[in-house]
Write a protein that binds this DNA or RNA. Structure first.
Lengths: 248, 248
DNA sequence: TCGATTATGATTATTTTTGAACAAATAAAA
DNA sequence: TTTTATTTGTTCAAAAATAATCATAATCGA
């Protein structure tokens, strides 16, 4: 039983129990207390735990509040249909913006073999496309852990330097009154994408149509096309407003 | 029973058991302990396992994106020592640059619980730190799939907008003649990091000391400190040149 | 075949790890 | 508050593992 092995065991125990006791560990691993103490001290020096009198505590009780994977896994069938249609709009040579929405994320799988440039603020998108034919441009700036994406002033300025042929965006809601977002940062980024692309596509599953939440940040005229699986009556209104509606 | 054959057996055993013991292997393969040690050391140098006292463990149970793993797994012990020392230089409140080298990447595990800002062009670093206490800033620009990092003109401009208290960088080689890089893009980024940080640390395992390869891009005066496990005579020269040398 | 290189093993010195003893510091109890 | 028990840091010593050195055996190319 060497240090590396003990370290693993201690950290695992710490992860499940939240705290550990020196006597307890010493007995369990059949090592002396002083050795246990040395192990804990070393782990504490590496910032892997908090040292307490007689034991140690987990250093980082904060949990990830927002699970991108789970969100992306919701409504998969509808989203995939939407994304397949979106991918059909993309041709080799395109330069496209992709935002950090969970629907847009699922577009990745359909464009891996296209010879295009993707400009994005979403780290999952980068991860998904990094070993594909797609050439990537990452938007810089402050990273928002909850959305796993880059947001903020610098990000907006970064976007403003580029021009894309198409932008594929998500929103939190779209109604006859306009587009809605969950945060100002998201709204800013979405607007920047739309402003710098020739054609702006909105990807929305049915749950977003007619929904109004938190912040109205733009009118319907911001987008050029809407790809959705909804059959809502709102779609007719959107068409009348000049939006190209692609139903899947 | 030659080395290749033993290597296969050891790795297979390691894969099933997770760890191996020198005495045990020596007995099983009917070779001396010293030979066993030599085998394990050689495998460790290739990054195929993690050497411990009395045996070895499977390399890095923590998941690292894709092909990055191979490079990052080489010389793990030395790199970890270097990074532990590097982490010791960082205090809460620091704003630090981290580049896309494999050594610098291993610094992540030691800084997850520090309250600092990290500005980086390395996507693996972002991945590793995204659910930590560290607040992240991603450098924007064109993504280089091979290095899994952002490079180029826009990236350099992005860096120029920020000032960090410390920069932790890798190079491809350092000799009495200066610093060497594998590509112009890498060199540019490294220089930009150094130029915009108060104190510049170079993280180099022994294989980089005295090595001159491809492109000399800067003199020794670019860096303020060198953290290394090397014992090369060059270190004295570096010290005379005004570099703070931290030996681990 | 010879000589040279490489792999292996034995021996010894060095380093690392571990545990014990005891004084100092800290938390808990009276 | 003072007292008591526990925890911790320090120093030292023993044991284990390792590195270094040298000698021997195996392998290979000419």
């Amino acid at each position: 039983m060497n240090f590396q092995k003990r370290k693993q065991i201690i950290l695992k125990k710490l992860d499940t129990d939240g705290e550990v006791d020196i006597k307890q560990i010493a007995a369990e691993l059949k090592i002396s207390e002083i050795t246990t103490r040395r192990d804990l001290n070393q782990l504490a020096a590496d910032g892997l735990l908090y040292r307490t009198h007689g034991g140690a505590m987990k250093v980082n009780p904060l949990e990830i509040p927002h699970d991108f994977v789970n969100k992306a896994a919701k409504n998969v069938e509808a989203k995939d249909k939407i994304c397949r249609a979106a991918a059909g709009q993309i041709i080799d040579g395109d330069i496209i913006f992709m935002d950090c929405g969970s629907t847009v994320f699922r577009l990745c799988q359909f464009i891996k073999n296209k010879k295009i440039k993707v400009i994005t603020n979403s780290i999952p998108v980068v991860y998904e496309l990094q070993n594909s034919l797609v050439s990537l441009n990452i938007i810089g700036g402050e990273f928002d852990a909850e959305r796993q994406a880059v947001h903020g002033k610098i990000a907006n300025e970064h976007i403003a330097r580029y021009r894309a042929s198409k932008a594929f965006l998500g929103v939190d809601g779209i109604s006859r009154n306009g587009l809605f977002a969950n945060s100002e940062l998201e709204a800013d980024i979405t607007q920047a994408f739309a402003a710098n692309s020739t054609k702006t596509y909105l990807l929305c599953d049915e749950s977003k149509i007619g929904k109004e939440s938190y912040l109205k940040f733009a009118g319907l005229d911001m987008i050029d096309a809407l790809i959705t699986n909804s059959t809502s009556a709102d779609l007719d209104y959107f068409k009348e407003s000049g939006i190209e509606v692609i139903e899947v």
